[in-house]
């Protein structure tokens, strides 16, 4: 079931087309990654979806309602973690989170429970009384997330939540998003970091110049392009290198083959995942190896193939 749908959405900023017949569907219970470089239209898509931006064409439904709906009930079901830090700088961590809790719940006891949950979730227990403006960059990001998840939304939109974060804080955030998803929250996660999309998302939408270039799981996306799988075989002291080259050359799907310093690299035609078959062949040929590894095409190669440019250009 779709939690949110965008169909043929068009958005212009004067002469610039930010969304060009953009389609996207977020399914219940999934983490959908919206992957694209800066300026590709990710935030515009989110702002249209949340009813903050007017759009010039197409249709959007969120939880079966129009995005501009003023129904407070709809807003209670949605959470937003914007890419900009958006909380009250002057207030303490606990005051910020409890204020956001108060927007969703009038019962004081329930507000307190929600606040405690968000503080624990974001790992801000030690910083409850800290003024928000004095937190480190990583802790500020966590507070930004805590304010967005305090009401345990059914549908959570995270817009580049790990922007400019160190590795440790990034890991903390990704684990938190996974945990929320396990608890039943559907997540729309925008990023321009390939690794995050690969690691976190069930499905990925690749957006470029406001257009949906491709949607699918990682293997589905990789399957869209004609990229070879590379298998590297390390032989102990270069033993049987000539025999190995001879035998592998006769296998189906081998596109290229070369050896260097006892390391044989085999290029295999798509679709990938030839590793298991190759290991079985080596066992039958009685050729020993010290290590064997497979290198599948990456999301970056997918992106490069679909858009003609690398993600970080």
């Amino acid at each position: 079931m779709a939690i949110c749908e965008m169909r043929g959405v068009v958005k212009h900023y004067k002469q610039v087309t930010a969304l060009n017949k953009f389609d996207m569907e977020v399914r219940e219970g999934e983490i959908l990654g919206l992957l694209g470089p800066n300026g590709s239209g990710k935030t515009t898509a989110i702002n249209c979806l949340l009813g903050l931006l007017k759009y010039d064409g197409g249709e959007i439904t969120v939880l079966d309602q129009a995005p501009a709906s003023r129904d407070p009930g709809l807003k209670r079901r949605i959470g937003l973690v914007p890419s900009d830090l958006a909380y009250f700088e002057e207030l303490s961590v606990i005051d910020n989170i409890s204020y956001f809790a108060g927007l969703y719940e009038t019962n004081k006891r329930e507000q307190k429970r929600m606040t405690g949950y968000a503080v624990d979730f974001a790992g801000l227990g030690k910083y409850r009384k800290f003024p928000a403006k004095k937190l480190s960059g990583g802790l500020k990001r966590r507070l930004n997330i805590a304010c967005g998840i305090v009401h345990s939304p059914e549908f959570l939109v995270l817009d580049e939540p790990t922007l400019a974060l160190d590795a440790q804080s990034r890991k903390y955030v990704l684990n938190g998003v996974r945990e929320l998803n396990r608890q039943g929250t559907t997540v729309l996660y925008t990023t321009h970091y390939l690794e995050e999309a690969q690691e976190l998302c069930d499905r990925i939408v690749i957006i470029d110049e406001g257009h949906n270039m491709a949607t699918g799981t990682l293997p589905e996306l990789i399957g869209l392009i004609d990229a070879e799988e590379s298998v590297h075989i390390e032989l102990p002291c270069g033993e049987k290198e000539a025999e190995l080259l001879e035998r592998v050359r006769s296998l189906d799907g081998v596109v290229d083959l070369f050896a260097h310093n006892g390391r044989v690299t085999v290029k295999l035609a798509p679709p990938g995942h030839h590793l298991a078959a190759l290991i079985e062949s080596l066992r039958l040929w009685d050729i020993a190896y010290s290590t064997i590894s497979s290198e599948l095409p990456t999301l970056n190669e997918v992106f490069l193939s679909l858009t003609g440019k690398a993600l970080r250009e």
Binding site: N47, L50, L52, P82, L85, A86, F100, L103
Partner: peptide, 16 residues
């Protein structure tokens, strides 16, 4: 007013 600050944009998505 959502167009004036990121915090206002965020608050506009809440039942404030």
């Amino acid at each position: 007013q959502a167009n004036l600050s990121p915090l206002a944009a965020r608050l506009s998505t809440t039942p404030l």
